[in-house]
Every structure is written in structure tokens, then in C-alpha cells.
């Protein structure tokens, strides 16, 4: 009798806790899938012709130029 109750409790516990699993709350958007609809990536345009590193460097420069403390140094 006791073992049956224990087994039932174990099963109920397993099922109950399984519902408490932590799932990521933010969707990972993949290019061309689900809401990550197909679009040309910014570095694939005529200006950079697929050169991602050059695009990132260009943006990094622009980003840093917003910091006037660096600009006056």
C-alpha cells in the first residue's frame, strides 16, 4: 500500500515538475525562418558587397564618433 502511494507521488511529482521547465522567453529569429523573414543583410547591399567585417568596422567608427570625449582627446 505504502509503495503504491509512494510510486503515485513520484509519478505525480515528476509530471508536476515537468510543467515548471524553464523555456527561453525570447524568440531567436533566424534569417528566412518564422518571423525572421527573408531580407538582404545590410552588408550584402551594393555598398559593402558581402564584406561583413568592413561593414562592422564602418558602423563601429560611426558609433565611436558619437562619443565627443573621444573626439576631443
Amino acid at each position: 500500500m505504502n509503495t503504491r502511494i509512494l510510486t503515485l507521488l513520484a509519478v505525480a511529482g515528476t509530471l508536476g515538475l515537468a510543467a515548471c521547465g524553464e523555456r527561453p522567453q525570447i524568440v531567436e529569429y533566424k534569417q528566412g525562418q518564422y518571423q525572421g523573414k527573408a531580407d538582404t543583410r545590410p552588408w550584402e547591399g551594393p555598398a559593402f558587397k558581402g564584406d561583413k567585417v568592413a561593414w562592422e568596422n564602418a558602423l563601429r567608427n560611426r558609433n565611436q564618433s558619437q562619443n565627443e570625449y573621444k573626439r576631443v582627446e
Binding site: 538582404t40 545590410p42 551594393p46 555598398a47 559593402f48 564602418a58
Partner: peptide, 19 residues
């Protein structure tokens, strides 16, 4: 397509693709 006229008419300029 990045920088196309169609894109400009609907969404405006694509500056990000120009770096």
C-alpha cells in the same frame, strides 16, 4: 532590395546598408 527605389518609397532610405 537594399537601396532600391521601391524600398525608399515604402520605408525610406537604408542607411544601415551604407554603413
Amino acid at each position: 532590395a537594399d537601396g532600391s527605389e521601391e524600398e525608399f518609397k515604402k520605408y525610406g532610405r537604408n542607411r544601415l546598408s551604407e554603413g
